[in-house]
Design a protein around this nucleic acid. Structure first.
Length: 474
RNA sequence: GGCGGCGUAGCCAAGUGGUAAGGCAGCGGAUUGCAAAUCCGUCAUUCAGCGGUUCGACCCCGCUCGCCGCCUCCA
C-alpha cells in the first residue's frame, strides 16, 4: 500500500513499526459547534484508510482525539477560549457545551457511515499526561518557564521545519508573530499557558493554574495510546504548520525517537475556490446537508474526489452524486433476497473479480477513492447489463455479495435497509399487485393515476418486463 | 515577503513517460400502453499558455498566466 508521506513529500510503501500492528492517530474536532462538510471529508477519508488497513490484514488501533479545551481564538494573551466563549453564548457550562457537540459530531459521523475510533480521548481528561510531557521537556532543556507559562524553545530542536519545509530562519520576516511577553524567541510556542482571571477551563500545575498549549494534547494522547512512535498521523492540510510541526518537535525532543512514520494530510473543502472554515462563515453543516440528502450521497460525493485534492462544494455536484448513488441503490435492490447456492455465470464472475481488483488496485495506490468508485460504476453497468438478460439466482447472489464486500465494507457505501417501518414492505407489494392487475385489465388511466399519487408521496413505480410492478421508495 | 498546492470535456473528477478511467448533464437508439428503471451508441485528435528534453509528454525541465492553502484557532 502506497501512501504520500508529508514528511519528505514522497510516495512510500506503508510499513508499520511492528507488523501486524498499525497505530493511527487523527486530529479530531474542537467541539464548539456542529460539524461541517470539511470535517465530513477529512474523517471519511481517514475512515477508508482505517478500513483498508484492517482489510489488508493489519491490526489497527485508531485514535482520534476530541478537543474540549478550547485554546485561544487568537495568538495574543487576551484571546478567549473558543469553548468558553461559545459556552457563554449558549449559557451552559464549558464541559456541557463540549459534551453537546461531541454527541453531535458522532451523530454526523455515524450517519456518514464512519466507523468510530477505537479510542476517542478527551484533551481535558489527559491533563496529567500533558503536564508530565512539559516537565520532561523542561528537564531536557527544550523548554523554559516564564510567568507561569512554559514555552518550547524552537532553537533547541534542530529538526524544526523538516515536516512543513519551513526553514526556521524564514519564520520571522513577514509573518505576524506576536511578541508575547516572556517568549525568548518569537518562534517559540506555548506548551502551557498561565490562566488569566476569568478563564474557566484551567487546571493546577507546577507552574500555577493554567491550561495546555495548542499542540500538546495530540502529542500526549498519541504517545499514551500508540507508543512513542506512531505509524500514521493524519489531519487537515492546514495543520501541517504550525500544529504538526510543533507536535513533532515537542514529541521527538521529549523521547529522542521518531514520533510519526507517516504523516498524511487531506485537502480542504472549498466554496467558490475559498476554503470552507468555521471562522470564515462560509461553511455548510452536515446536518443542513442531511436534511436534503441521504448521508450516503454525501459520502459518495466526498469519495469521488481524492483525499489530497481540494473538493469544491457546489449544489450541482451534490445533485450529481445523488443521481449516481441512486443507481447503486437500484442495483443493490435488484439483487436483494436472492437465494444463495446457485452457480453464477461466467460474465458475472468476471465482473465481480474485476470490481475487486479495481478497488484493490486503487486503494493500494495512495487511497485513490475516485478510482475505486470508477470501478464500482463499471461494475454497476456490467451487472445491470447481465441482469437485463435472462439470468439465474447465482448471478444475482454473486452481484449482491460483490457489492456487500469491498464497496460496502471498505468504501462504506451501503444502501440503507429497504424499509424501517414494519408493514410498509407488505403494503408496497400489495400496491404493486394492484397496479399489475389494472395494467392487465388495460385500465391505464387508473394505473397512471395511482402512479402519480405514489410519486407525489415519494415512491416510484417500476414496471417489469414480466408484467409485475414494484413500488420503491425514491 | 517565505513555504506549498492546483489548472484535464458543459459540470465534477482519475491518470503522472507509451498514446485521455468514472460520474452527472446532453443527444440518438433499444425496451415500455405511456413512463420510470436499465442497456447500447455518442460526447476532450486533446490535458491553462509558450518553449525545451525524449523515438514518444497530460505526465519530466524552464518560463508565463490564472486560482488556492499555510505562515493566527481551524478537518
Amino acid at each position: 500500500m502506497i501512501l504520500t508521506n508529508t514528511l519528505g513529500g514522497a510516495r512510500q510503501e506503508f510499513v508499520p513499526l511492528s507488523p501486524p500492528f498499525a497505530g493511527v492517530y487523527v486530529c479530531g474536532p474542537t467541539v464548539y459547534g456542529d460539524s461541517h462538510l470539511g470535517h465530513g471529508k477529512s474523517y471519511t477519508g481517514f475512515d477508508v484508510l482505517v478500513r483498508w488497513l484492517a482489510r489488508s490484514g493489519y491490526r489497527v488501533r485508531y485514535v482520534q482525539n476530541i478537543t474540549d479545551v478550547g485554546h485561544l481564538t487568537d495568538d495574543a494573551d487576551s484571546g478567549e477560549d473558543k469553548v468558553q466563549k461559545q459556552a457563554a453564548i449558549e449559557r451552559v457550562e464549558p464541559m456541557e457545551l463540549a459534551e453537546r457537540y461531541t454527541a453531535s459530531y458522532f451523530e454526523d459521523m455515524d450517519a456518514l457511515g464512519n466507523i468510530r475510533p477505537d479510542i476517542s480521548p478527551r484533551a481535558s481528561g489527559h491533563i496529567p499526561e500533558q503536564i508530565e510531557l512539559v516537565e520532561n521537556l523542561l528537564a531536557k532543556g527544550n523548554a523554559y518557564e516564564a510567568d507561569g507559562s512554559v514555552y518550547f524553545s524552537v532553537e533547541s530542536f534542530p529538526g524544526y521545519g523538516a515536516l512543513s519545509g519551513r526553514i526556521p530562519a524564514d519564520l520571522i520576516p513577514g509573518a505576524r508573530v506576536e511578541a508575547a511577553p516572556g517568549k525568548r524567541d518569537p518562534r517559540d510556542f506555548a506548551l502551557w499557558k498561565a490562566a488569566l482571571p476569568g478563564h474557566i477551563l484551567k487546571w493546577r500545575s507546577p507552574w500555577g493554574a493554567g491550561y495546555p498549549g495548542w499542540h500538546l494534547e495530540c502529542s500526549a494522547m498519541a504517545m499514551r495510546y500508540l507508543g512513542e512512535t506512531v505509524d500514521i498521523h493524519g489531519g487537515g492540510l492546514e495543520n501541517v504548520f504550525p500544529h504538526h510541526e510543533s507536535e513533532r518537535a515537542q514529541s521527538e525532543a521529549a523521547t529522542g525517537r521518531q514520533f510519526v512514520r507517516f504523516w498524511l494530510h487531506n485537502n480542504m473543502v472549498t466554496v467558490g475556490g475559498t476554503k470552507m472554515g468555521k471562522s470564515l462563515g462560509n461553511f455548510i453543516t452536515l446536518k443542513q446537508i442531511f436534511s436534503d440528502y441521504d448521508p450516503m450521497v454525501v459520502r459518495l460525493y466526498i469519495l469521488r474526489s481524492h483525499y489530497r485534492s481540494p473538493l469544491d462544494f457546489t449544489p450541482e455536484g451534490l445533485q450529481s452524486a445523488k443521481s449516481a448513488w441512486e443507481r447503486l441503490v437500484e442495483l443493490r435492490r435488484r439483487v436483494s433476497g436472492s437465494p444463495a447456492g446457485a452457480a453464477p455465470g461466467e460474465a458475472m464472475t468476471s465482473a465481480a473479480a474485476e470490481l475487486k481488483e479495481g478497488i484493490t488496485r486503487a486503494l493500494d495506490d495512495d487511497l485513490d477513492t475516485p478510482g475505486a468508485v470508477a470501478s464500482l460504476f463499471e461494475f454497476t453497468r456490467k451487472a445491470n447489463s447481465i441482469l437485463d438478460a435472462p439470468c439465474g439466482d447465482g448471478d444475482r447472489a454473486l452481484a449482491a455479495l460483490a457489492l456487500d464486500d469491498l464497496p460496502a465494507d471498505v468504501l462504506g457505501l451501503r444502501p440503507g435497509a429497504p424499509s424501517a417501518v414494519s408493514g410498509v414492505d407488505a403494503l408496497l407489494a400489495a400496491l404493486g399487485e394492484a397496479r399489475e392487475a389494472m395494467r392487465k385489465g388495460r385500465l391505464y388511466a387508473e394505473a397512471d393515476r395511482m402512479r402519480d399519487t405514489l410519486s407525489a408521496a415519494g415512491y416510484s413505480v417500476r414496471d417489469q418486463p414480466d408484467g409485475k410492478s414494484s413500488i420503491v421508495r425514491q
